[in-house]
């Protein structure tokens, strides 16, 4: 019997494959290593030639480049229609896409249309007695749910950053197949793009970032975070999305998937639960300290130093300690 395939749908922009595209390919290769499967990379867009060649040269994998004349940007209707046809033709065992604004948009509907299981934001894959197990975060990252598809096809989306984009495995042969599909979306119309809030330059330049989460409780408590930041030279204040949604901080201070990606030497997370979307922005931080009153908070899994305390009392305690310690024994305790 011919080996069934794994379709890896790679995103591309301006003629280049996006890093998420290689992460999806890496995930597909991981699946391939368990089973006698064959990875096929799928590219969709009005100009898929250059990214198709890039993937072919870098990996030697088989590529299907589906050209969609006139569809300059992503269109969910088109993606679902094109992939439905490819699934009918190729009968793949798995279809992998990025858990991005595109993949998360088209994958669930696609799965519903073809009667496949849909497993989103997959972080790890393993096999157990011939059953492929997909692990994904749940409850804001506090738990990991392990799921297995009960259908012939599984449509999965890959959590950004979970698989390394360094795909260096080279296959000897491989081919690029070009196709053209004329698709006219009839229930949606693209009207272009609008820029988002620009990220605070202070965040990218800061050596130390003190970040506030919903756990600060009220806007007035931001002053605690500001006082803590003031103890460090070259520091900046950041926040989680809810803190910005509530207007306690401006959106330019938001850190995470849909905010800034930062890499300070020290990151102090105050009252932040540690959801994957927030943590996506701090992977390259040097040293991470987390202050959270919940001993099971997910942020403690990505912290170097864990402090289970109420931040409203701990921050003042720490600042008092700092103050005390910075006075040498010879200096007189003059009342403040």
């Amino acid at each position: 019997m011919r080996n069934r395939s794994i379709l890896a749908v790679a995103e591309h922009a301006q003629g280049r494959v996006k890093p998420s595209g290689y992460e999806v390919i890496a995930c597909a290769l991981r699946l391939e290593s368990f089973r006698q499967l064959r990875v096929l990379v799928v590219l969709i867009g009005d100009q898929p030639e250059a990214p198709a060649r890039e993937i072919f040269q870098r990996t030697g994998l088989d590529v299907i480049a589906v050209q969609t004349p006139g569809l300059a940007s992503y269109n969910g209707e088109a993606h679902r229609a094109i992939l439905t046809d490819l699934i009918a033709e190729l009968d793949p065992a798995c279809l992998c896409a990025a858990h991005s604004s595109q993949g998360a948009d088209f994958a669930p509907g696609l799965a519903a249309r073809v009667g496949a299981a849909c497993i989103t934001a997959v972080e790890r894959i393993s096999v157990d007695s011939d059953c492929v197990i997909f692990a994904r975060g749940a409850s804001g990252g506090k738990l990991v749910a392990e799921l297995a598809a009960t259908t012939r096809l599984a449509v999965i989306t890959v959590q950004p950053g979970a698989f390394s984009a360094d795909v260096d495995r080279r296959y000897p042969q491989g081919s690029i197949e070009f196709r053209t599909v004329n698709f006219e979306p009839h229930r949606s119309r693209a009207l272009g793009f609008k820029p988002g809030a620009t990220c605070d330059k202070g965040l990218s330049e800061a050596r130390v970032i003190v970040a506030a989460g919903r756990g600060i409780g009220k806007q007035e408590n931001l002053s605690l975070v500001q006082d803590l930041a003031a103890a460090f030279p070259r520091s900046a204040i950041g926040g989680s999305r809810p803190v910005c949604d509530m207007g306690w901080l401006e959106y330019k201070s938001q850190i995470g998937l849909t905010g800034a990606t930062v890499s300070p030497q020290l990151y102090i997370a105050c009252g932040i639960s540690g959801s994957a979307q927030h943590v996506a922005g701090i992977r390259d931080a040097g040293f991470v300290v987390a202050i959270n009153s919940d001993p099971n908070a997910a942020i403690f899994n990505v912290a170097d130093l864990c402090i289970v305390e109420d931040l409203t009392t701990f921050i003042p305690t720490f600042l008092a300690e700092l103050h005390r310690a910075s006075e040498t024994p010879t200096s007189k305790e003059n009342g403040r």
Binding site: S101, R187, S188, A190, F193, G196, C199, G259
Partner: peptide, 12 residues
């Protein structure tokens, strides 16, 4: 909302 806080505009 799409990546980087950018917005995609459409009509449905």
């Amino acid at each position: 909302e799409i990546e980087g806080g950018e917005r995609e505009v459409l009509e449905l």
